[in-house]
């Protein structure tokens, strides 16, 4: 597996994202310029320039029409991908830690930091779109649709993500808790003390019915959104910054490493700056991908499951197209299960 190095950011990466077709990669970093790249060869397609500070988060809608960025400069910006133009800017009270379009693309959420007396919130904005062209049909409202303010007794939200059909919002808190809210009203539904340290990432399965969390406590967990039942736990030996669920194969990819502030004092070997592949169902580690020389801040996998990208503290995005051995890899148990299934199908066809 030969990685493609996306060199374009001047500072550490904060998030990478694939579009729905998996042919474009969106990345943002602490250098205030977001980038979009061709997934096929790693060529940069363009940049989104306009933020005044670190861009903490980026997302692309399912039509690959707009991208949204959340920045430490107290603003959220909406960009037209085709032109790279800033379409709209929302001012916020605190730095924006995370932005994400809802699956329908009609809304997006923003995680607002709890600083300067603001208790922190997950704020949802609406995007009025034309049903045909998916273009903005009118200027979006500056006012949020609703605010999910940090609940009493909970630490502030660190990350958040949408479930299937915009149904729920799953929020990862700094205290390791995960809470669940109604995606239409923002009403609190349930919470779960999942991790012992801050939740660093929440990413849903392709169909949005279950999600994976990563935490600074070195664990990643797979949780069903409907029941908030913990399905699987993946234990590692280093703080985790990001985790994603691979489509096509039954794996998860976890990224992390020694704390960024200790990076200069550790070698890359000891720093555990590797992407780790675990078997989603059997919870075994099945492989590691080396390359970064700082912790991995974010990992993302293409919705088709054919490639993944990781963004590191080292300022690089490493894009990997999986090769044959990845697709061929199967446990004997899986092979024999598939074989039995195949034979049953033949049997029933006959």
């Amino acid at each position: 597996m030969r990685p493609i190095l996306l060199k374009g950011h001047e500072r550490s990466l904060t998030q990478v994202k694939f579009n729905r077709e998996g042919d474009l990669i969106f990345s943002c970093a602490k250098d205030s310029v977001a980038s979009v790249w061709y997934a096929i060869n790693g060529e940069r397609l363009g940049t989104f320039e306009g933020h005044q500070g670190t861009i903490w988060s980026i997302d692309v809608d399912k039509f690959t029409k707009y991208t949204v960025t959340g920045s430490a400069d107290f603003s959220i910006k909406l960009w037209d991908i085709e032109t790279g133009q800033n379409v709209y800017t929302w001012k916020t009270k605190t730095p924006v830690r995370r932005v994400e379009f809802s699956p329908s693309g009609d809304k997006f959420l923003a995680v607002l930091d709890g600083v300067m007396g603001y208790p922190g919130s997950v704020t949802v904005y609406e995007l009025p779109r034309d049903a045909q062209t998916h273009q903005l049909s009118q200027e979006p409202s500056e006012e949020p649709l609703f605010n999910i303010m940090t609940q009493e007794g909970f630490d502030i939200a660190a990350v958040a993500a949408w479930s299937f059909l915009d149904q729920y919002i799953a929020v990862g808190h700094k205290d390791g808790r995960v809470s669940k809210y109604d995606g239409a009203t923002g009403e609190f539904i349930d919470a779960l003390e999942l991790h012992t340290q801050s939740v660093s990432d929440v990413q849903f399965s392709p169909d949005g019915t279950y999600f994976i969390t990563s935490s600074r406590d070195s664990d990643a967990k797979l949780v069903d959104i409907e029941t908030l039942e913990v399905l699987k736990t993946y234990e590692t030996d280093c703080p985790l910054n990001s985790a994603c669920i691979t489509p096509l194969k039954q794996f998860v990819i976890l990224g992390g490493g020694q704390d960024a502030k200790d990076v200069t004092t550790t070698s890359s070997r000891e720093g555990k700056f590797e992407a780790r592949l675990y078997h989603k169902i059997f919870q075994d580690e099945i492989g590691r991908v080396k390359g970064h020389f700082g912790p991995l801040n974010c990992v993302a996998v293409s919705p088709q499951g054919t490639s993944y990208a990781s963004g590191g503290e080292d300022g690089f995005v490493r894009l990997h197209h999986f090769d044959k051995s990845y697709f061929d890899f199967k446990y004997d148990v899986e092979k024999s299960f598939e074989a039995q299934k195949h034979m049953q199908e033949l049997e029933s066809n006959a």
């Binding site: 998996g22 299937f164 169909d207 019915t209 096509l248 989603k280 059997f282 499951g305």
Partner: peptide
């Protein structure tokens, strides 16, 4: 474990269909 997972997914499929008329899937086709 594999059986458990398959059962979980089957259950999910049914629940999602019943409650939200939503079909689950495992990957986005290109």
């Amino acid at each position: 474990l594999l059986e458990e997972w398959i059962n979980y997914r089957e259950e999910s499929t049914e629940n999602m269909r019943d409650a939200y008329n939503y079909e689950v899937f495992d990957q986005v086709e290109f």
